[in-house]
Design a binder for these strands. Structure first.
Ligand code: ZN
Ligand code: ZN
Ligand code: ZN
Ligand code: ZN
Lengths: 143, 143
DNA sequence: TATAAACTTAGAGTAAACTCTAAGGTCAAG
DNA sequence: CTTGACCTTAGAGTTTACTCTAAGTTTATA
């Protein structure tokens, strides 16, 4: 049985985060000491690691809660339950990626257009470009 | 001179957002009527559009404030001032992209490993993979 | 003139995921 | 026994960028 600090160092989560996850229904201590100390079993460790992995994959805390509810009752859930969540997350991630790629492209164009030296910004092409999109409009370089 | 609602419909911002930007030092009405109504000039419109463009490129509200402070006093700033901000933002965006690409890849692998049908999740490969990373560890598929 | 649309303010609420604080109790080691 | 490290709780704070509300004023139009 591990105390919260031990679970923390074992999983790379902080004790704070573990308590936060508990509040959100993700991780529960199998036991409590008389003094209220949380004690975790090996199964708890595996669950905490499941949570950590799922979070790293991009699932929200709420998603993870849902995944855990499937995990503890697999026979009453289907693969589709799982792929639905995963599919939604992928769409989500793809959207964010394409927004960011568009920003990336614009930022690179901006940087390539400006020497970045110590001369006055009076004719800085980045400033001009950010301004120009008034007249030249979004079509020119923003998207 | 435009009222806030007119500036809003002209820029695609909402009146709420414009007031929020004002509170954050991004957009100020050149005039106020006796009743306190904000009145915006064409220069204000251009500034609001600068703000909108800069936000769309990914600059934070704080970044935009800095860019605006350069904009109103270009001769006392350098191109480097501008590229520094832009560079930082690009690094930022690149980091986010690579995190998201890693998630994307993992999610795709997960989805490819599971049929997603109506059969029981008892042996769902997604659930197994999220669990497996306990034993198999992060090296296997998460990053 | 009456009504509706638009405007004003300060301040609270939202979202997500933590992160930290205060004030105090517990436990192992020396 | 006395440290010091670790644990407890409820609840507030952080970050970013809005978004909304309430309660009241002003303006344009019919
Ligand atoms: Zn189900
Ligand atoms: Zn420049
Ligand atoms: Zn400067
Ligand atoms: Zn499956």
């Amino acid at each position: 049985m591990l105390k919260i600090g031990e679970l923390a160092s074992k999983t790379g989560l902080t004790a704070h985060t573990i308590r936060f996850y508990e509040k959100n229904g993700l991780i529960n201590a199998s036991e409590r000491s008389d003094a209220g100390y949380r004690y975790y079993t090996e199964a708890d460790v595996r669950q905490a690691e499941f949570v950590k992995t799922a979070r790293k994959v991009g699932f929200s805390v709420d998603d993870v809660a849902t995944l855990l509810s499937i995990r503890v009752d697999k026979s009453n859930h289907t693969c589709q339950d799982v792929t639905d969540i995963t599919q939604r997350k992928l769409i989500d991630v793809n959207e964010k990626i394409s927004e960011l790629l568009s920003m990336q492209q614009t930022l690179e164009i901006l940087l390539n257009s400006c020497g970045g030296g110590l001369e006055s910004a009076t004719h800085c092409s980045i400033m001009e470009a950010l301004d120009a999109s008034n007249a030249l409009n979004a079509r020119s370089f923003v998207q």
